[in-house]
Design a protein around this nucleic acid. Structure first.
Lengths: 202, 202, 202, 202
DNA sequence: CATGAATGAGCGTTCATTCAT
DNA sequence: TATGAATGAACGCTCATTCAT
């Protein structure tokens, strides 16, 4: 599953450029329009080289999905680590999470393109599941941490997980479609407030 | 904007079959894999006929988007009309809404495929906007009705609108990806409870 | 060969509109891009109607060629008739001929498109021959008239005919490609002067 | 602008064959009937290969136009170089020019098909302009040479240029339409004689 | 290690035309 | 008389991929 870059420096640089180009392409053109040819063009590489490094379109996108997932989850974790007082994770965290996620619109758009495609594309479904599982693990870790501090969730953890992921996806989609509107900001505030009420202190 | 079916009975039947096939195709294969050829095959019609009735792929999908939107919104309204005591719309309504929406998985999948594609496809974006506007109008109508019955929303209507749509889209996506799991059911219950608390009686 | 318009008024109007549209189309898009569909669109008529009135694309263009030829030759003859003193036909006539011909650039362009296509299109060759024969007849009539007034051509009539037609076509082409430049005007003056010298008075 | 042939010998041979086939096709079928498929067939190559070497039909024809122009102008210059005594260029040259030009009827027909198409085809217009500019440069060079030998043109050089090009195009068209008739020969003699009179010795 | 050559399948679209009624 | 339905063939072009070297 892990992508091992070619040993030579040039090879590493090129394959890296291809992955970047694929993410950019995904963000602007969507999954199915991100053809090998277009990605190669974006990367400034001969079309043939894409399949030289990645054997097939599918394999390339496996790597791309992983890359996007790592970046997205990495930003989430960085946002959470940034909180000095973990007691407030739920109540203040979402703001920072949102800030991080929307800092790279292209990344989000690329992610969403993959999510959407995964509804009708079995192979991609498996790959995208990787990212969702990351979210789930993160939420589980957080709720465990909260529990260890004596805070009990007022609702089932499974349901909470579903609601958080659904909330993030739904709000992300709203952001992609209509941008960073006041209504969206205020909706996020409400969502965040609700999250806080689910894990009351004491 | 409205689709005017061909004058003859046979023509109407054929074009109807093509639209249906397009919806089915969209649900199983996604937007870009729903080629004219495949749709024609699904409809049991010569490929050339699709372009006889619709002039271009784009025009066909304009009609399809509208069709999906009307069906989706129609089911929503039917669900709401089914409620005898409108005072309970918020507290009981979502259950029925969900029942209706998930009654046709293909329709939902098709809708979502279009939503996703619309992120990177300008033309589709406009068309899909038509459906979202329908949601918005419906929510606005409901909140006005609630207000006329003396119930005040505890949060900004704009933010509520965003949250409802984001919630529906997020939960829909969860449904499409993982099916009708207990966690999802329970998440819906929580969401519904929260909705009720936003518009308290009296 | 002659085109007999449909008996009804509406039919006559429509078929007339189609011919006009074909000429316009020919002028702007060239022969092969003047498809039945495009002509119908230009004429504001259902595509099917074109073949209703003309049976085939070929037949339509036969009529169109004849129409263009008649208009072009008609304008030539009108120009010559306008000369009060026929003795000066050669020396002053070309100016008026040129004025008339370039009065309708679209007509010229359409004519030239047909001439060019006729090089590789056997059927059209025959039709376009009709126009060239008209030129030839006109030149022959003129030289006969000159002879009857006691003026002798200093060169063979056949060669003169070729030179006049070649001159008109060549200058027409120059006009279509570069417009009505001073160099073209001055070239026409020279050509006209040479024509005058070919049929000296006395 | 220049066409860079593929690096390998086989590639060069193939792309050369395709260009040749395109010229032949152009001569017999005209521009718009010279489809990629037909050209491929003529070249004995898979249709897909044409687009492998040339990226688009337009690009192929750009190369073809240049090729035709170079051959045509090359033959003109060869004809002029063949004249030992440059003093007689005007008086004897046209004969040889004509001999050369009509030595390859297909080339001429192809050229003319392009000229005609260029009237209604913007892109081609630019390409064909390349050939016409070649003619102009050649004429300018000749008249400069004549001037350096103490012969003065009796008419404006610009007008002469127009007349020469118009003459060549008009006579070429006559040749393509009616073949090498005595009348055409005799017309050429007259034209040549007139050219001589325009640049009198001494 | 890297690249040119080659390919079959399919894309959306346009074409002139025939068959019904 | 006038129209809708239907069609097969071809168009230029893109696709992911394999075969050579």
């Amino acid at each position: 599953m892990a992508f091992s870059p070619p040993p030579t420096a040039k090879g590493a640089r090129q394959s890296e450029a291809i992955i970047d180009a694929a993410v950019r392409c995904l963000a602007t053109d969507g999954y199915s329009a991100s053809s090998i040819g277009r990605i190669a063009e974006q990367a400034g590489v001969h079309k043939r080289m894409v399949l030289y490094y990645f054997a097939s379109r599918e394999e390339l996108f496996d790597v791309v999905v992983q890359r996007i997932g790592d970046q997205l989850l990495g930003q989430l974790e960085a946002a959470l680590l940034g909180l000095e007082e973990p007691a407030d994770i739920v109540s203040v965290g979402f703001d920072q999470i949102w800030e991080r996620m929307t800092s790279d619109r292209a990344l989000l758009a690329a992610y969403f393109g993959l999510v959407a495609e995964s509804v009708t594309n079995r192979h991609l479904r498996k790959s995208v599941g990787y990212i969702n599982d990351g979210y789930r693990r993160l939420i589980h870790r957080l709720s465990a941490e909260l529990a260890s501090r004596g805070r009990r969730l007022t609702i089932d953890e499974q349901a909470l997980t579903v609601l958080i992921i659904a909330g993030i996806q739904g709000l992300t989609l709203e952001y992609l479609e209509r941008g960073d509107t006041p209504a969206l900001r205020s909706a996020i505030d409400v969502f965040q407030g609700w999250l806080g009420s689910v894990a009351p202190a004491r």
